[in-house]
């Protein structure tokens, strides 16, 4: 009994936190999505907001476009993070911990500050344009880098690289080095050993990285707002934000949020399936 009581006391605070911070708001969101009015509960309930979402092609189009942006960001972040993680796992020697810390250090800075610092770098008169000027090209003749869809991708990739690197590093670091020796003994070239041994074993880590980057990018609205400008500044999250804070259409904002949530849940299920297949094939 006392054991149970102690367990109960230990579990109660996190359970309470989950309830207050996740379950109740989610339930509220679902409730709001079927309300007819943002503020007046007497107006009753309706599915009009859902109908609007599915019949107006612009929202689904924006969702697709945002998904594509998130895909590019996640793919580029993983591609760039992989070599770094590889180096850390196999070649960093006694510098390993120091170098990992260095990789993570930028993530200690506030998210907003990191985005704002890219504003300084991408803006005209910023670091990049001085660099271009330095090699003899007139930067003012080039199109502006800041306030474009490209600026959003660059900034998001930078922000998420440390998070993409860690899971890959962990799988590579745990890799049984004897497998590589065996591959070598059996006459495989280093490239072939990487292709047939290292890469397949690290794929689950790569997928985790991808998901780590993809999901928060899909819902992000701060980065497009700050560096995207009029041409790249509107992603799915921005419309959700605007529905809540400006249009005062909480029901529709809730529908947009739920649609995003459902999509991501489906992707996560898909991811679980893929990892199972991958690890099954590797026979580990």
């Amino acid at each position: 009994m006392t054991h149970r009581l102690r367990l109960g006391i230990l579990i109660a605070p996190p359970l309470l936190l989950l309830l207050v911070a996740i379950v109740i708001p989610l339930a509220g969101m679902i409730l709001f999505s079927v309300r007819a009015d943002s503020f007046d509960p007497n107006e009753g309930y309706s599915l009009a907001s859902y109908q609007e979402f599915f019949t107006d092609p612009r929202y689904l189009r924006l969702m697709g476009q945002t998904g594509w942006t998130a895909f590019i960001v996640a793919a580029v972040a993983v591609l760039l993070a992989y070599p770094v993680a590889y180096f850390l796992a196999f070649h960093s020697g006694r510098w390993k911990l120091t170098l990992i810390a260095l990789m993570i250090v930028p993530a200690w800075t506030s998210y907003l500050l990191r985005i704002l610092s890219w504003k300084v770098m991408l803006g005209s008169g910023g670091l990049l344009s001085s660099l271009v000027n330095g090699i003899g090209i007139d930067a003012s003749s080039l199109p502006l880098l800041l306030y474009s869809p490209q600026a959003v991708v660059i900034t998001l990739v930078y922000v998420w690289i440390p998070f993409a690197g860690l899971p890959i590093f962990v799988t590579l670091d745990r890799l049984d080095k004897r497998l590589l020796e065996a591959a070598n003994d059996l006459g495989a070239s280093p490239l072939r050993a990487f292709w047939r041994v290292t890469l397949p074993i690290s794929l689950p880590g790569v997928l985790v990285s991808f998901i780590y980057v993809f999901i928060p990018t899909f819902g992000d609205w701060v980065t497009p707002l700050l560096v995207g400008g009029a041409q790249g500044g509107i992603l799915y999250g921005n419309i959700i934000q605007s529905q809540y804070t400006r249009a005062l259409n909480w029901p529709f904002g809730s529908v947009l949020s739920i649609a995003l949530l459902v999509l991501i849940l489906v992707l996560l299920l898909l991811y679980g399936r893929i990892t199972r297949v991958l690890t099954g094939e590797n026979g580990s």
């Binding site: 612009r58 929202y59 189009r61 924006l62 509107i234 921005n238 419309i239 605007s242 529905q243 400006r246 249009a247 005062l248």
Partner: peptide, 15 residues
């Protein structure tokens, strides 16, 4: 008020 918010949102949503 609502109409203006919708118009402005539609401008931003336009491809």
């Amino acid at each position: 008020l609502e109409a203006y918010a919708t118009i402005w949102d539609n401008v931003k949503l336009a491809p």
